[in-house]
Simulated scan of single mutants.
Amino acid sequence: MQIRDSMVSVGEGAAVEVRRIRHEQSQGPTLVFLHESLGSISLWRRFPEHLAKATGYDALVYNRLGYGSSSDEELPRPYDYQEREGAVILPRLLDELGLDKVVLIGHSDGGSIALIAAGALGERAHALITMAAHTYADKLTVDGITEMMDRYQTTDLREKLQRYHGARTDDLFRAWHTVWLDEGFDESLDFSDWLAGIQCPSMIIQGEIDEYGVPEQVADIVAGIGASAQPLFLPDTGHSPHLEKPDQLLELVCDFLLGIEPVKSENRH
């Protein structure tokens, strides 16, 4: 496989940092990885590479606006930032790269964005996999963010995050907790139309001991999508299955993806 990093335009003078993992010959849709609120390309570790190798699919991992070397994001984050990312920015990125058939894989905030993108992309979405996605801020979400804010101020968490986000660390942390603890933001969230528009096979994953989300998040998402969605709870797993149980998750996701009817790759590049 070949791994290359580059900058790709997403319109309006903005560009995002992308990492492409490619085989000599593409064997299906492209895996698209959407990171969490405090995540990045590098914080996926090697999971994208391992999944690309196991499935034979190419992969695309990118830093959202405001992360890594990507252009700045709008701050403070508007209430509709997830919709803009999933329904506007990501489709522009896929168009720019000529990717017509994708598997959306999102973690936490990226999982929520993946739900929106799957609804927006229609038949371009071959499959959807979310881990710890949220469609509202439940009690565990609020309590977990509040606890994280305390750790940010009293422990070495800030220094650890600076290894990945550098000078943007404070802005990213503030953007994350400010919007998610805003009651107006929670009241504005409405995923019903996006979920109803999802046509592809979907695996909705959550750790049984996820400290940021109640199990009802999964039940509500699956109900909103319908028969094409299946829930999956991982025992002894918290908020980040790809970091806590990478081998188990890799096997489960591979079985899910390779069990879907094969499609001929339609990627133009």
Rank of each mutant, 00 (worst) to 15 (best):
M1E: 04
I3Q: 12
D5A: 12
S6M: 13
M7W: 11
V10Y: 02
E12D: 14
A14R: 14
A15Q: 15
R20Q: 14
I21V: 14
H23F: 02
L31H: 09
L31W: 09
L34A: 03
H35N: 00
S37P: 02
L38C: 07
S40W: 00
I41F: 14
I41T: 10
W44V: 08
L51F: 01
A54C: 04
A54Y: 06
T55M: 06
G56W: 06
Y57G: 04
D58W: 09
A59P: 05
A59T: 11
L60E: 06
R64P: 07
L65E: 11
G66T: 09
G68C: 07
G68R: 07
S69F: 05
S69P: 00
S71F: 10
D72W: 04
L75M: 10
Y79P: 07
Y79C: 07
Y81D: 08
R84D: 08
R84N: 11
R84T: 11
A87L: 06
P91K: 08
P91A: 09
L93V: 07
L93K: 07
L94H: 05
E96Q: 13
L99F: 10
L99S: 02
D100S: 11
D100L: 08
V102S: 03
G106M: 05
G110V: 09
G111L: 06
S112H: 12
I116R: 04
A117W: 12
A117R: 06
A117S: 14
G119V: 00
A120S: 15
L121V: 09
I129H: 00
H134R: 01
H134V: 01
H134P: 02
T146V: 11
D150G: 05
Y152L: 04
T154D: 05
L157S: 04
L157T: 01
R158S: 05
Q162S: 08
Y164K: 08
Y164W: 15
T169W: 03
F173M: 14
R174L: 10
W176P: 12
W176N: 08
H177Y: 14
W180I: 07
D182V: 04
G184K: 10
F185Q: 03
D186I: 02
D190F: 05
D193P: 00
W194H: 11
L195H: 03
A196C: 05
G197V: 08
I198F: 00
C200E: 09
S202A: 15
M203C: 11
I205M: 04
Q206S: 08
E208C: 10
E211A: 15
G213K: 07
P215A: 09
V218A: 10
A219L: 08
A219K: 13
V222Q: 05
V222L: 01
G224F: 09
A227T: 14
Q230S: 15
F233I: 11
P235F: 08
G238V: 03
H239L: 00
S240D: 05
S240N: 06
P241Y: 00
K245S: 02
K245D: 02
K245M: 03
L249S: 02
E251Q: 11
L252G: 01
L257F: 00
L258Q: 13
G259A: 04
G259I: 00
E261S: 13
K264E: 15
E266L: 15
H269C: 07
H269D: 11
